[in-house]
Design a protein around this nucleic acid. Structure first.
Lengths: 126, 126
DNA sequence: TTTATATTTGCAACTTGGTTGCAATAGTAA
DNA sequence: TTACTATTGCAACCAAGTTGCAAATATAAA
């Protein structure tokens, strides 16, 4: 189900994403939110936000679930298919603006592409 | 640690990968191997095979760990960076031969790229 | 062949991410 | 206010993956 009511918890979670284009893992959110919030609540709100086209989700290098703000999505269309960069040093995940060309694969219908680049971020390089 | 001894279990596991270019999830292997094998053993052997450059691993769409045969890797160099295709219908994962161009990202050092294409495979399309 | 040594395995217990059912709470519209 | 429905917290659960340790087994040396 998509977001129907603008509760305090929904607002608080949305604020976390509004500022940056970095992605946030659910685990991080559950641990570090200023107002403590039950983990099932966090999972459920993020889920609804994704269905509403406000967030998109993907799996990071260790199998953790990450969410980040969508740029131009709706509940019908998740067109915001950009690559993500995860730092092998600090673990941070960034959304990238670069476009990746996805090849056509014969006899396959491609619906979604998840590109995760792994390496060192600016901070960890120095 | 890399593979040091050619045990029966190591051989059995390797046979699973030898035939096809499909990837296999650890969960699948633990459930379906003809000769039952403890799951920690499976995890450890696959781990060692990856370190030896015989297999590479990646995370599928549900956070499960998958392994597939390397083409030209060694324990020093995992150069076998190809995209994977996972079917949204049956869950099967294939290794693709198509090359994906990875853009340079300013102020970032990219060490690895994981590309997971999601869609319908040939069987599930018909 | 036998012995010695280091690697590998099974087991059981554990850790952790994520899910679920249900009763209590809180938005929203009338 | 009231009534209705969405949302939340809680506790219990499930499944993937990890770990420590004692027993088993491959391999090299004698």
């Amino acid at each position: 189900m998509a977001i129907k009511r603008q509760t305090a918890t929904v607002k608080l979670l949305w604020e976390q994403f509004e500022e940056s284009r970095d992605a946030l893992s659910v685990v991080y959110l559950v641990k570090h939110l200023k107002v403590a919030m039950n983990k099932s609540t966090v999972y459920r709100i993020l889920d609804r936000m994704e269905e509403s086209g406000k967030l998109h989700s993907f799996i990071g290098k260790n199998g953790l679930k990450w969410y980040a703000k969508c740029q131009d999505c709706s509940s019908e269309n998740h067109i915001d298919i950009h690559p993500h960069f995860q730092c092998n040093g600090c673990g941070k995940v960034e959304c990238l603006t670069e476009e990746i060309k996805i090849p056509k694969i014969s006899k396959h219908q491609i619906q979604l592409a998840q590109v995760l680049l792994l390496g060192k971020c600016e901070t960890c390089l120095n």
